[in-house]
Design a binder for these strands. Structure first.
Lengths: 165, 165
DNA sequence: TACTTAACCCAGCAAAATAGTCAACTATTA
DNA sequence: TAATAGTTGACTATTTTGCTGGGTTAAGTA
C-alpha cells in the first residue's frame, strides 16, 4: 500500500486550535453530539473559525455533523483511532515544502543534503505524532508511558550517538 | 528550581529555515567560518532573512559571528550540544499560549482540562525535539555518503572563490 | 592609510496566513 | 411550521512571513 505521505508537519496555532477542539469533542461527545457553540464557549475560540476548522475535519472523515435540534458534531471513529498528526494535517494546507520536488533541480548536492536531513526529521516528528491518539491524551496515565516508549523508539531509529565529553 | 519553561513548540517554515541553516552551518563550519551568503546560495534563503534568523540565534548563544574577510558564522557549541528545540525556540517568538495564565480565570474546569491536555502534549513534543541534536542528524548513514561526495565539490567551490595563497 | 569583506542593524513592504464577521442557505427535529 | 444547527461563501482586519535595500561597524589586506 502506497501513501503519498505528507512529510512536512506544521505545528501552528491553527493546529493547536484543532487539536484542542477535537480533545473537547472527544471528551464531551460520548453521550450526544456537541455543538460548535459549546466548544467555542469552553475553549474561547470563535464560532466561525471553528466552523472552518470542522469543515476540514469533516472532509477528512474524522467528524460527522448532525443537523437539527440536539445535533452537533461527533467523532466518526473511536478516540483511540484518531491520531494527532492527522488532525493537524487536516486543518493545515499541504504546502509541499520541497523546493526541489523529489530530485530534479538540486544539482548542488549540499542543498539536497540539508533538505533531506530536514525532511527526515520532519518525518520523525510526524511518526511521533501519529503514535499519539486522542484517547492517549484523555487517559493521562497512559500518555506518559506511550511518550517514553515512542521517544525511545525514535531515538533508536535515528541511531543516536551521543559523545560523552 | 523553577524554570519558566517555554512549553509551546511551534513548527513553522521559519523554524524549518533556521534548522536547515543550522544544519548547513554545522556541516560546513568545521574548518572555518561560513558566510551567510554561502548558506543563502546553498539553501536558497534570502540573505536578509538569514541575517534576521542568525541575529536571534546569536542572541540565543548558539552561533558566533566573525567579522571581516574570512569571517562568517560558526557554532558556539558542538553540534552534539545543540538540539532542535532550542533552534526553533530561538527564532520563534514566545507567544505565551496560555489564555488562563497559570490558573486564574478558568472557572469552567473543562476548558482547563483540555488546555492542560494540550500543554502536556506540547511539552512531550518539546522533550522529543530536545533529544535530537544537530550531530544526530548529521551522523545518519546516508548523510556520510553524500557528504563525502560533496566535500570534493565544496573544496572545489572554495578554491574557486578564495584564491589559495 | 585605503580598500574590501562580512557581520550587524534598521526601516519598510508585499504577500500570505491567521482569526474572525456576516449573511444566506439546508437538513433535521419538535 | 418554527427552531435548531450544520453548511457555505464572501469579505475584513490583523499578524506573520519573507524579502529588498539602505546603512554602520569590525576585521582583515594591499
Amino acid at each position: 500500500m502506497v501513501f503519498i505521505e505528507e512529510v512536512t508537519v506544521r505545528l501552528t496555532t491553527k493546529g493547536r486550535y484543532a487539536v484542542t477542539a477535537m480533545l473537547d469533542l472527544a471528551f464531551h461527545s460520548q453521550v450526544k453530539p456537541v455543538t460548535l457553540t459549546e466548544i467555542a464557549a469552553r475553549q474561547t475560540i470563535s464560532l466561525s473559525y471553528l466552523e472552518q476548522l470542522f469543515a476540514r475535519l469533516r472532509r477528512a472523515g474524522m467528524v460527522k455533523g448532525v443537523r437539527g435540534p440536539g445535533g452537533g458534531y461527533k467523532l466518526c471513529r473511536k478516540a483511540g483511532e484518531i491520531n494527532i498528526a492527522e488532525i493537524i494535517a487536516a486543518v493545515d494546507e499541504p504546502l509541499d515544502s520541497t523546493k526541489c520536488g523529489g530530485e530534479g533541480n538540486c544539482q548542488k548536492g549540499d542543498a539536497c543534503l540539508t533538505h533531506n536531513l530536514w525532511m527526515g526529521l520532519s518525518k520523525q516528528i510526524r511518526t511521533y505524532l501519529v503514535g499519539i491518539s486522542l484517547a492517549d491524551l484523555l487517559e493521562k496515565d497512559q500518555v506518559q508511558e506511550v511518550a517514553k516508549r515512542q521517544h525511545y523508539d525514535a531515538q533508536q531509529a535515528i541511531e543516536v550517538c551521543y559523545r560523552p565529553e
